[in-house]
Design a protein around this nucleic acid. Sequence first.
RNA 1: GUGGCUGUAGCUCAGCCGGUUAGAGCGCCUGGUUGUGGUCCAGGAGGUCGGGGGUUCGAAUCCCCUCAGCCACCCCA
Length: 414
Amino acid sequence: MARLQPVRGTHDLLPEQARAFRRVADAARGVAERYGYHEMATPIFEFSEVFKRTLGDTSDIVTKEMYTFADRSGAEITLRPEGTAGVARAVISGGLAQHMPLKYFYAGPMFRYERPQKGRLRQFHQIGVELLGVAEPLGDIEAIALGAATLDALGVSGQVTLELNTLGNAASRAAYRELLVDYFEARRGELSRDSLDRLARNPLRILDSKNPGDRAAIAGAPTLGDSLDAESADFFASVRDGLDRLGIAYAVNPRLVRGLDYYCHTAFEFTTDALGAQGAVIAGGRYDGLVGQMGGPETPGVGWAGGIERLSMLAGAPEPPPRPIALIPIGPRAEAETLVLADRLRRAGFAIELGYRGNLSRRLSRADRVNARAAVILGEDELARDMATVRDLDSGAQDEVPLAALADRLAGLS
RNA sequence: GUGGCUGUAGCUCAGCCGGUUAGAGCGCCUGGUUGUGGUCCAGGAGGUCGGGGGUUCGAAUCCCCUCAGCCACCCCA
């Protein structure tokens, strides 16, 4: 046990948790398809360049969280830390941009070298959607509505609130960034070490700081809203209007920001306070500059990603698996018959458990443990008459049924 | 990456200021029932006390290192 442990921050998905994950992914996929988003998958590793270019050289993910290695050809490879970069790369390398708008759903593992915590792992799983080629606010509204509908489908809406903000267009952002840097430069002495670092790399992030000392300085900082030009303000108003029409509640949070240059206009997060410090369960925004920055055609985009672990923690226990029927032979001749009968019933759609070994008592006990709905007992006596004993494991009642009628009888069990 | 808490059987935990063969409940296995489960009764298996080193006559218990989990920061899903 000393050495045989999983790599830090990774977990085995045992059946119950696998089921919980599948429920989240299935629910999200189902909702996404009703919105016209179809599943696609990109490789879980890419050339490191793909992530460096999309995430930026200064982002935390690129500077300290990527799982990067050289493969046998010497190529620098990175396990994907998020999903959007791979999709954007696929759009470019596959020439998909000719078929705009593109609407994709994806689900799968992501990798980040972080310090593990509840709801934060080194291998974790995300669902996500990307809408490419739609520059209108309608795209933002649809993406957010899709997120809200996904949370509804999982029954967790009550535990989650939507926070919304705008970063404005490129001109507005650049103007604001300048104001902000001037403001904080004048107050360097009041800022925490972390925030001084952010001032150099990613000044908008300071607004997000939880450091109490920073808060005072932040309180007096210029707000992005004041720097928005008419186009940016109109865009945001349209998004909010759409959400209002859909009855999707939100709180505008002026401190909700994104660090990278290609993000613009809408930024949003569905957050919960039920998961400790890991509050975001779905987060996304508009990234009009991303595909262009990667070397593709200028392509507007909006999307979000949701954490499957986090969502499944909120959603609680998954549906139990379907209850099987236990087939229990008595004696070697019956054993051989049972093999064939099991195969026939399985092909007919029944979930069948075989006891594998032991006497009747032992096999019934095992049937009970796997939560079997009924046991079909095949003894020499019954077989001689082409009959089987069907025992209802809930009521304990049992009777003999002709083999020919067995499937119908089992289908009749609730 | 920084700081704090924790680590005893498959699971949940007890084991006081170091003292002889490390315990409980649940679970698991066997038998009571060579053709009847879930209840009950009896019995049993299972632990290098996360790992390594040190202090000591003696360490699950004290010290150091290390690994892992949890919490906060950071970051985000």
